[in-house]
Design a protein around this nucleic acid. Sequence first.
DNA 1: CTGAAAGCGCTAACAC
DNA 2: GTGTTAGCGCTTTCAG
Lengths: 342, 342
Amino acid sequence: MGMDPDTAGRASIKDVAQHAGVSPQTVSRVANGYVHVRPAMRERVLASMRELGYRPNSAARNLKSGRFRSIGLVAFNITTLGNERTLEAVAEAAASAGYTTTLIPVADPTGGNVAGAFGRLEEQAVDGIILIMSAELGSPDDLALTAGLPLVIVDSDVATGHALVDTDQEQGARSAMQHLLDLGHRRIAHVAGPESSYSARRRSETYRRVVQENDLPAVEMRRGNWTASSGLAAGAAILDSDPRPTAVFAANDQMALGVITAAHARGVRVPEDLSVMGFDDAPDSDTYWPALSTVHQNFDVVGQRATEILIAMIDGDPIPENQLIPTQLVVRDSTAAAPRDA
Amino acid sequence: MGMDPDTAGRASIKDVAQHAGVSPQTVSRVANGYVHVRPAMRERVLASMRELGYRPNSAARNLKSGRFRSIGLVAFNITTLGNERTLEAVAEAAASAGYTTTLIPVADPTGGNVAGAFGRLEEQAVDGIILIMSAELGSPDDLALTAGLPLVIVDSDVATGHALVDTDQEQGARSAMQHLLDLGHRRIAHVAGPESSYSARRRSETYRRVVQENDLPAVEMRRGNWTASSGLAAGAAILDSDPRPTAVFAANDQMALGVITAAHARGVRVPEDLSVMGFDDAPDSDTYWPALSTVHQNFDVVGQRATEILIAMIDGDPIPENQLIPTQLVVRDSTAAAPRDA
DNA sequence: CTGAAAGCGCTAACAC
DNA sequence: GTGTTAGCGCTTTCAG
């Protein structure tokens, strides 16, 4: 032990000081790029650092500064398209602000036990938390778990007093429905996402509202679980119903893919016989057959904004107003004018 | 300052001790669930903890223990299907072993500047590193950046002396080709992934080897960038070539989707006129039209295994042999017997 | 420009 | 069972 220069993190600032024949303080100054150090001495210290393979101990730094320079990302599921993209944006924004990102996976709180799912969040070595719930928050108390850490919430309903950043689901869903309306569709079906998802609920609520506002004929709503195969099942049910809807608004692109596949399987032409709208603008959706009309979500903006806000809060800024990130309608080949005889 | 009980992480072990009228050591014992504490005193301490909103300072713990209980995940890109799934598996495995996962995004080292991309990896507050390169490692020296930290490499070629966990790309690609061969195909095209990707290279090398071994007619290889739209372009080129191949092996499912769409656009029937194989078994691939035959990769096993190995290395175990995780052939509806007249 | 001293919050080792 | 002491590696005073 101690003989192998490869052994990680051995050399302390003291060792370097001894080796270079200076005080630990001077080493610290050099390590931090402090200016008032004589070049000759700086060189000597740097040489010793290299020779000893010195690397600063961040635990000690953290202890001193009371900061971790790390933000915690709490998510129930990081493999959904949106969460994944948001996560990457957070990691990048954090990195460029000098923060690392700590992933804190929590058990899915099915059954409403959100508090239990968090575990000992407050003990994590982070300066603040971004919560990507994709689920309903039980009560404000659940957030007490964060013990006063700065907190930004994405994709969930929130008790006031916390920062919120999210896609403007209502605007997005409205633009999708309006597009179908503009094409002359009236019998429009909806494939909703899972009930536990907040964004799914926002989209289906908007769907219902638009149906009401325009006196559209009622169509039984189907529910999927975001997967393409669940969309296939929902699409089959919709296509077998009578009278058959002329358009389907699916709550995400993958379920829309399922609906399209269900149509192919029945010889129903898309978009001639059936228009299909998605939501997300997933990377593949431009290559579906036909290319999918959808609503583009700016996940990277969501992640970036959330990170900026969190870091501002860590620095002591007040909680800003809720941030709703707008979507963009993307019209491709899966939607067309409603058939005449419908 | 100090008046607001909400202020994060204020109360130290000393404050609690004072409040409860005991020594800091006793507080520490209670905090760590140490047994030899009189119940009455334990209660008193716990009450003070609650009242003061005490939460242990992990920086101090880290400093004391010399361990961070965190593993660093270094990746160039976390939004590819495989990386994302691997990442989630790592985060979960790490969590259940009491470790957090720190995301360390690095700039894509296009141009071979891998070392530069790492930045100051050795300063991160982690006990070990999992490197998901998805790219070629320039030279072993690049890894010197990790400064002796335990290191597990996923999806890359490696200089010996490091642990490697990866999908058995060769076995997977071979099984895909063998499936097409068994169906009587001989003119088989390949849509490769980007040249910078190690796994893409492994798959295309295997393709070439199988072509040679079986004296198959040469077909110009096309290269995509993993996206469905690049697969569409490659598929178009393949379908327009003469003689037309009867089968295509795409290096991932998304590009396979593009090939299928190119076929639809030309009225080429899949699988009657053209068989299409993918790779990955992406979640949507069972709902493509037709359902995609592919090779299932066990990303979660890769992530889990990598984590186990890394933690073992952190605990001082020796570097184990390379771990190759097998794949499974998944036959669905996009492949069929080669047409007679081909 | 450089060094010495003190202390961040916690726990291992040792008293009592 | 409980308290006291010391020190992890670093940086913020304060002296020179």
